[in-house]
């Protein structure tokens, strides 16, 4: 299988006052196309720092990072922006939708920064992405007219619309109650079945059984990296859902 991500001795240090905070202390791993990887670890273990680097929002202090075969380390700001625009779909804990803006316009946003996509194609692809996340009947709803779960699904559609090589989700279920979390998880599983490569960051170890692989971080190091051959179905969990009060 094609290798989408490869890191070699990835380090990230922050200088806070006189102190050096070592957020990542040398990570080497690779992720193949079609994998659904969960990254778990307690708060402060370096998950977000790693994801920001993988998402080309940040650069490592040391080490190499190849995205889709291209070395990102020496790239300029603008080239990284283009890379984010074409190859990456980012999903945030707090959705980050534009206020007072319709679902379809929110989803169109990444394509607004891509000259090769015409207005009509942009609209078509946005509707397609919203249909894929089950929001085809909420196209013209503004973000404040949607529930948290729906808002996160709009954000997922926005991450899908540019057909990225990898989807990066940082605590995507962090603001949702557990039923909504499983719904989002079910959506990720559906995307995974459709062949998408997904990196799902969570501090909740319960969610790791739903992906094909789990990387565990502690203090900026990988302490385990295991394949999961017995993937649980989030749809099943939802089917057997008992309302807890």
């Amino acid at each position: 299988m094609a290798e989408i991500i490869r890191t070699v001795g990835l380090k990230r240090e922050f200088i806070v006052g006189d102190e050096v905070v070592r957020a990542l202390r040398g990570l080497s791993f690779s992720i193949d196309s079609g994998e659904f990887v969960t990254i778990v670890g307690s708060s402060g273990s370096g998950k977000s720092t790693l994801l920001n680097i993988l998402g080309c929002l940040d650069v490592p202090t040391a080490g190499e990072y190849y995205l889709d075969g291209v070395s990102v380390r020496n790239m300029g700001k603008n080239d990284r922006a283009t890379l984010r625009n074409r190859k990456i779909g980012f999903i945030f804990q707090n959705y980050n939708l534009l206020p007072k803006t319709t679902s379809v316009e929110n989803v169109e946003l990444p394509l607004m920064y891509n000259r090769d996509v015409s207005a009509s194609e942009r609209r078509r692809r946005a509707i397609e992405a919203l249909t894929a996340v089950g929001l085809e009947d909420r196209l013209m709803h503004k973000s404040n007219q949607l529930s948290g779960g729906q808002q996160q699904r709009v954000a997922i559609a926005r991450a899908l619309v540019n057909d990225p090589v990898i989807i990066l989700a940082d605590e995507a279920t962090g603001n949702l109650d557990s039923k909504k979390s499983y719904e989002v998880l079910a959506l990720f599983q559906k995307l995974h079945r459709a062949g998408k490569t997904i990196l799902f960051v969570t501090h909740n170890p319960d969610l790791e059984q739903f992906s094909s692989r789990t990387i565990t971080l502690r203090d900026g190091r990988i302490i385990s990296d295991v394949r999961n051959d017995n993937i649980q179905s989030a749809d099943e969990v939802l089917a057997n859902w008992k309302e807890e009060d």
Binding site: A81, T82, R86, L98, L109, Y113, N114
Partner: peptide, 16 residues
């Protein structure tokens, strides 16, 4: 500021 951050994260360049 958050909106600017979001736009940048989905590919907007400084000049955009």
């Amino acid at each position: 500021t958050r909106e600017i951050g979001l736009r940048m994260s989905i590919g907007a360049k400084g000049r955009h």
